[in-house]
């Protein structure tokens, strides 16, 4: 087994492990920029993943599954937004509630629908670049074999950057997250902006669920996200709400996760439990080193009531 082939495998695995995480983190970054701390992504991913899987299986159409996941995520985001923006309920509590309810509902519905067997999706996502030549060693072969969801994810990175940094709406989002009172004074409809941000956040969670269940695995099982939704919150913060930094942070997380497997393959004599701690310790260290001195959006976690400046 050549070093080059091993490195290619490591890189390919790194990319795959970071896809759903990147999408979910980008969504969380949009929400947090608008002042919404959503701890419910895990549950939103799960229920969207289930709904997308169910739709894809029933219709025998993968694309319809993706659509269903995104719509389901957006609806979940709307519920979250409605509760925390309109009803002004506590964000942390509602987020935890969404995680519990989304996980519970998806597991319940899965066992109701497919109690006696584990259906697998027939279709497979295309690999748009598979016919290209290898190009650069290691990087080339690791990339060309990927499914299109990988490239969609990478396309989302500049798109979200453009949305947040170059559009009026992005400006309003950040204003709603930093100084909602001032934004209101300047004529921004803070409620509408935050509600929209919550819906986008939800739709991204939905796509992340679909990326996992439909694109990567080809099936759904209860609890398949195994904490991705929570790690996404950390990655959004490590990346300081900047899409490019988030994408890199998610890749690094994927790298640490894959490195554990890789070291086992290359026969490094370390107990697997220690290898499995790496990515989580990595997040803590990354925050200590990278994110020091960064401020959270000033109004993160705060509800906004017209006329009251709480920041």
């Amino acid at each position: 087994m050549s070093i080059e082939a091993l490195l290619t495998a490591l890189l390919a695995s790194t990319i795959i492990s970071s896809v759903a995480l990147t999408i979910a983190s980008l969504g969380e970054a949009i929400g947090e920029s608008a002042g919404l701390l959503n701890l419910g992504i895990e549950g939103m991913m799960l229920i969207s993943g289930f709904v997308g899987f169910w739709a894809a299986l029933e219709s025998n159409n993968l694309w319809l599954g993706f659509l269903a996941s995104i719509v389901c995520g957006a609806v979940a985001g709307l519920i979250f937004g409605g509760l925390v923006v309109l009803a002004q309920a506590d964000q942390v509590i509602v987020g935890l509630a969404m995680t519990l309810a989304g996980g519970g509902l998806s597991g319940y519905l899965f066992r109701e629908a497919y109690g006696s067997n584990q259906p697998l999706l027939q279709g497979d996502l295309g690999r748009p670049l598979r016919h290209l030549g290898g190009g650069i060693p290691v990087i080339g072969p690791a990339i060309i074999g990927q499914k299109w969801i990988v490239f969609v994810t990478w396309a989302l990175v500049p798109l979200v950057w453009w949305l947040l940094r170059r559009t009026r709406f992005g400006l309003e989002i950040r204003a709603a997250g930093e100084r909602p009172f001032a934004a209101d004074v300047a004529g921004v409809d803070v409620t509408r902006v935050r509600l929209l941000a919550a819906v986008i956040n939800g739709a991204f969670s939905g796509l992340a669920g679909a990326a996992l269940a439909l694109a990567e695995l080809g099936f759904f099982r209860p609890g398949i996200t195994v904490g991705t939704g929570f790690i996404a919150i950390a990655i959004a913060m490590v990346g300081r709400w900047d899409p490019l930094r988030i994408a890199i942070a998610a890749l690094l997380f994927g790298l640490l996760r894959s490195a554990g497997t890789w070291m086992q393959i290359t026969g490094v004599n370390i107990r697997p439990e220690f290898l499995q701690m790496l990515p989580y310790l990595g997040v803590i260290v990354a925050i200590v080193i990278l994110a020091r001195g960064t401020r959270l959006p000033a109004a993160l976690g705060l509800s906004y009531r017209r006329g009251i400046d709480r920041t």
């Binding site: 509760l83 509602v94 935890l96 309810a101 989304g102 509902l105 597991g107």
Partner: peptide, 10 residues
């Protein structure tokens, strides 16, 4: 019952 807990919390 996870669902119920979530609903209670919400």
């Amino acid at each position: 019952f996870d669902l119920l807990e979530g609903l209670i919390l919400a």
